[in-house]
């Protein structure tokens, strides 16, 4: 999964989709995950990194990550192939 290329993410966790004009806010851990996704991390790498850094077990975080990426899909912010979607 990738975040659509044209979507800007600020350090303060503000996301803007220039195609739809929608804005979003993301909490700090969400911003961190988005950064990892953009850097090409796969989910198991994200899980490992987060579980090493935060007080959370793999099961819980796995579930929360699925939920989070599910919401990215829900808001049409992600793409699952390399080709650019609108």
């Amino acid at each position: 999964m990738r975040i659509k290329k044209n979507i800007a993410i600020s350090e303060s966790g503000f996301m803007f989709n220039p195609i739809t004009g929608e804005s979003f806010t993301v909490n700090p851990i969400g911003t961190e995950i988005l950064q990892m996704i953009n850097d090409g991390f796969e989910s198991d790498q994200i899980i490992e990194a987060i579980c090493n850094k935060y007080q959370v077990d793999q099961h819980t975080f796995d579930k929360d990550l699925t939920d989070f990426t599910g919401m990215l899909d829900h808001h049409h912010l992600s793409q699952h192939h390399d080709k650019e979607e609108a």
Binding site: S10, S12, G13, F14, F16, S23, T25
Partner: peptide, 11 residues
Amino acid sequence: DISEFQKISTS
């Protein structure tokens, strides 16, 4: 500019 909207929305 959207940066102003961003500022009031996030902070």
